[in-house]
Amino acid sequence: MGIKEKLAEKSGMPREIVLNYPKLTLIGNNELEIENYKGIIEYSDTLIRLNTYLFMFRIEGSELEISSVTTDFISVRGKIKGIEML
């Protein structure tokens, strides 16, 4: 465990802020919000691959669309069938 991780744990500060860990929020199976992502690697209406500071996410589904996107936040809508960490 690194110093930053220990500091975050001891201080009780949110790790997604201190360590830039990705934070996923899945609402049902049709909306996924990801904070602290780095970039879009691949986008189609059945597959989205996103890069974060820890993993690469592979989101599979159908009728996928990016409902909004900023530098550190992305929101995906559609019929989400699976999320995979690579």
């Binding site: 879009i40 690697i41 669309e65 990016i66 996107v69 530098t71």
Partner: peptide
């Protein structure tokens, strides 16, 4: 198109409702 999106977002351009409209068309 992913490259386009990443570059636009890094220039603080707010984008929403991104949809695939065909082969390599968004």
């Amino acid at each position: 198109p992913e490259r386009f999106l990443n570059l636009a977002v890094n220039r603080n351009i707010y984008i929403w409702d991104v949809r695939r409209a065909g082969n390599n068309v968004y």
